[in-house]
Design a protein around this nucleic acid. Structure first.
Lengths: 181, 181
DNA sequence: ACGGTTAGGTCAGCCATGTTGACATATTTA
DNA sequence: TAAATATGTCAACATGGCTGACCTAACCGT
């Protein structure tokens, strides 16, 4: 196991005395706050999705297709890290109900490139709006550089061996979105 | 633990509720970084648990019982926000395999107060150690007050109407742990 | 002492979403 | 033309949520 004896001595605002002189005590506050925060974070979309007969799996697919129009099925599988059987189930429902469409690849006609429809984009943006409202509310309670610090913290929480790939993926979607307008 | 309650700014730029309809772009980076970071965060424990035939549900139960020895079943249900049938399934396995024990309440003999065994504490601390290693590694890449900012951000991401209850819950577990030593 | 409430347990079944393994089809590529 | 690739699909299974119904034991107020 990695060395847990991490010097965090300069921060006492949240950790306080339970750290002092111990060295091996888990960082309980972040562990538990992440649990509660993430649960609420996905709770808002869950409520909307439930009314449509969808679940979180549908949300994830819709989100990434909306963010990366023309995405290949293989790319989506790689991002979600689920099997194609699991993806197939929810993707089929999204397609059948008109939230996502597939187009044959221009270069490679085996590919089924994924796009959201107008209906799909509306839902994806509604869900992203709920999550953004929560994030914006949280950031506005903190200092002006809270957004940057939050991003750096979350980035550093990602496995080092695919951190860069994640950042490139996010940046690529941002560039594509700006280019589309 | 120090007071985690963050004073709510009354004059912030825009509240969550005001966000929608401004034509603003969603905060894609935080949305997606949260997804990837949380997945990796729970991935480490998952691997350990899988070898024992346990899943995330067992982890959550073990975690909170370890953090709050003598917890009532009803309290655990309230924290996890699952049904007693769902809890019963995993709790029974943890008890049968000697990770958790139940003791009759001293005042109210209907209560089955929950405690981890030595075996249970060992596992709980191992899992918390994995998550702490990740968190400590992330915080060490950032500035000296990153821990405080991360906690404030995560706290602000929790639903306002139970934020204080969560903070009190965390603080109570910390105090009890310090008292035990 | 009794009757209602509370703490907790349990059975039965359903749903969502993950898994493996095997196989099919179309298309590209060497 | 043969192999590799992109995708889809069938079947079976596991986990961990859920509802509804029903049970015991213990507490508590009258």
């Amino acid at each position: 196991m990695a060395d847990l004896t991490v010097p965090v001595a300069t921060d006492r605002a949240f950790s306080g005395a339970e750290w002092a002189g111990r060295g091996n005590e888990p960082i309980w506050d972040v562990i538990e706050l992440l649990f509660f925060a993430y649960r609420d974070f996905i709770g808002d979309p869950d409520d909307v999705l439930a009314k449509l007969g969808f679940g979180r799996a549908h949300h994830r697919v819709l989100h990434f297709v909306n963010r990366n129009p023309g995405m290949k099925v293989a790319e989506l599988l790689d991002v979600l890290k689920i099997t194609k059987q699991s993806l197939g189930r929810v993707l089929k429902q999204l397609i059948d109900q008109g939230y996502v469409v597939q187009k044959e690849g221009a270069n490679d006609r085996r590919q089924r490139l994924l796009y959201v429809t107008a209906k799909g984009e509306t839902l994806a943006m509604k869900l992203a709006g709920l999550q953004t409202a929560r994030i914006a509310g949280a950031l506005s309670e903190l200092g002006p550089n809270a957004h940057e610090v939050a991003c750096r913290f979350l980035t550093a929480m990602i496995n080092a061996d695919h951190r860069d790939a994640v950042l490139r993926f996010i940046a690529r979607a941002d560039r594509a979105r700006r280019a589309r307008g």
